[in-house]
Simulated scan of single mutants.
Amino acid sequence: MIMTPVSVRYIVDDVAASIDFYVKHLGFAIERDARPAFCSVTHGDLRLLLSGPESSGARAMPDGRRPVPRGWNRILLVVPDLKQEVARLKGAGLAFCNDIINGVGGSQTLLEDPSGNVIELFQPAAH
Rank of each mutant, 00 (worst) to 15 (best):
residue 1 M to F: 14
residue 1 M to Q: 10
residue 1 M to N: 11
residue 2 I to A: 09
residue 4 T to V: 13
residue 5 P to C: 02
residue 5 P to A: 05
residue 6 V to H: 11
residue 6 V to G: 05
residue 8 V to W: 05
residue 10 Y to F: 13
residue 11 I to P: 00
residue 11 I to R: 00
residue 11 I to Y: 00
residue 13 D to A: 12
residue 14 D to R: 01
residue 14 D to H: 01
residue 15 V to I: 05
residue 20 D to Q: 11
residue 20 D to L: 05
residue 20 D to G: 00
residue 23 V to F: 04
residue 25 H to M: 03
residue 27 G to T: 04
residue 28 F to N: 09
residue 29 A to C: 11
residue 31 E to W: 10
residue 32 R to Q: 14
residue 33 D to R: 09
residue 33 D to L: 07
residue 36 P to G: 10
residue 36 P to Q: 05
residue 37 A to L: 04
residue 37 A to M: 07
residue 38 F to G: 04
residue 39 C to N: 04
residue 39 C to Y: 05
residue 39 C to E: 04
residue 40 S to D: 15
residue 42 T to G: 13
residue 44 G to F: 12
residue 45 D to Y: 09
residue 50 L to Y: 04
residue 50 L to F: 08
residue 51 S to F: 03
residue 53 P to E: 03
residue 54 E to C: 08
residue 57 G to T: 01
residue 57 G to I: 01
residue 57 G to L: 08
residue 58 A to R: 08
residue 58 A to S: 14
residue 60 A to N: 06
residue 62 P to S: 01
residue 64 G to F: 11
residue 66 R to M: 10
residue 66 R to S: 13
residue 67 P to S: 12
residue 67 P to E: 11
residue 67 P to T: 06
residue 68 V to K: 06
residue 69 P to A: 06
residue 69 P to H: 04
residue 69 P to S: 05
residue 69 P to W: 02
residue 72 W to Y: 06
residue 72 W to V: 15
residue 73 N to E: 04
residue 73 N to T: 10
residue 74 R to E: 07
residue 75 I to Q: 09
residue 76 L to G: 03
residue 80 P to Q: 02
residue 81 D to E: 13
residue 81 D to C: 01
residue 82 L to E: 06
residue 82 L to N: 01
residue 83 K to A: 13
residue 84 Q to D: 15
residue 86 V to M: 10
residue 86 V to P: 01
residue 86 V to D: 08
residue 87 A to L: 11
residue 88 R to W: 02
residue 90 K to W: 00
residue 90 K to I: 00
residue 96 F to W: 08
residue 100 I to N: 04
residue 100 I to R: 02
residue 101 I to V: 15
residue 102 N to E: 12
residue 105 G to K: 08
residue 106 G to Q: 06
residue 108 Q to V: 12
residue 108 Q to Y: 12
residue 108 Q to A: 14
residue 108 Q to W: 14
residue 109 T to K: 00
residue 109 T to Q: 05
residue 109 T to W: 10
residue 110 L to T: 13
residue 110 L to N: 10
residue 112 E to V: 13
residue 114 P to G: 09
residue 114 P to Y: 09
residue 115 S to H: 02
residue 116 G to S: 06
residue 116 G to V: 13
residue 116 G to K: 03
residue 117 N to K: 04
residue 117 N to I: 11
residue 117 N to R: 01
residue 118 V to S: 00
residue 119 I to A: 01
residue 120 E to D: 03
residue 121 L to V: 10
residue 122 F to D: 00
residue 123 Q to A: 08
residue 126 A to I: 15
residue 127 H to M: 12
residue 127 H to D: 11
